[in-house]
Design a protein around this nucleic acid. Structure first.
Length: 192
DNA sequence: ACCCAGGGTCATA
DNA sequence: TATGACCATGGG
């Protein structure tokens, strides 16, 4: 959950350093994060970038998390309520909320990130101007075909998104370089 | 000396 | 509601 907040627009390797700092200071828990002075927290988050912003966001999240009864309390919330709760925290947007829902609470929610948008766009499966929600529902409905077991669905969303992240950097950011992209076979610009 | 990384919020018009 | 500024480090 901490990683979900720290990885906002940030390379995961930098997030790992920040988490290592928290761990080394024995400050990797909601109460410990709230106990430290915010300047100290920000200092520990420095490798992850945006450290002043993220220190505030982590605190906001931890306050909500403790007030909501931590994992033991939250795990009994239905997914819609849990998602609304996460989104009510200043600093937690749709992607961060869904990261937490899928990877921490094992809920059947597909995470839409920059890589997902880019890949779908390259494949001609999305125009690029879709809202987060519409794109999410579309993919969820598509991937859920033939799967009736909830746990199996979580596994599919988990693995599918993980693969997108793992290979996302191999997809060219701009169309002009599309001929070098791993998706060239399905890329409209490459065919042109 | 660039560009980029698994976003989100806030101030404008 | 729709853009744009802003946040800031580390690797390529």
């Amino acid at each position: 959950m901490v990683g979900a907040v720290l990885t906002q627009n940030t390379a995961w390797t930098n997030v790992e350093r920040a988490i290592a700092n928290l761990r080394a200071a024995k400050a990797l828990s909601a109460t410990r994060i709230l106990a430290a002075p915010i300047e100290t927290l920000a200092q520990r988050l420095m490798p992850a970038g945006y450290f002043n912003v993220k220190a505030r966001r982590l605190r906001n999240f931890c306050e909500w998390y403790l007030a909501a009864g931590e994992y033991r309390g939250l795990r009994r919330w239905d997914t819609a309520r849990l998602r609304a709760g996460l989104l009510s925290v200043n600093g937690v947007g749709p992607e961060t909320a869904d990261d937490i829902l899928l990877y921490a609470f094992h809920r059947p929610v597909f995470v839409i990130d920059a890589y997902t948008r880019r890949i779908l766009s390259r494949l001609g499966l999305a125009a690029g101007d879709e809202t987060y929600e519409s794109l999410r529902r579309h993919i969820e409905q598509d991937l859920a075909q033939g799967i009736n077991d909830e746990q199996a669905l979580v596994n599919v969303y988990n693995e599918y998104h993980a693969l997108i992240v793992r290979h996302g950097k191999e997809v060219c950011r701009t169309r002009p370089r599309c001929e070098f992209c791993v998706l060239r076979a399905g890329c409209p610009a490459a065919a042109a």
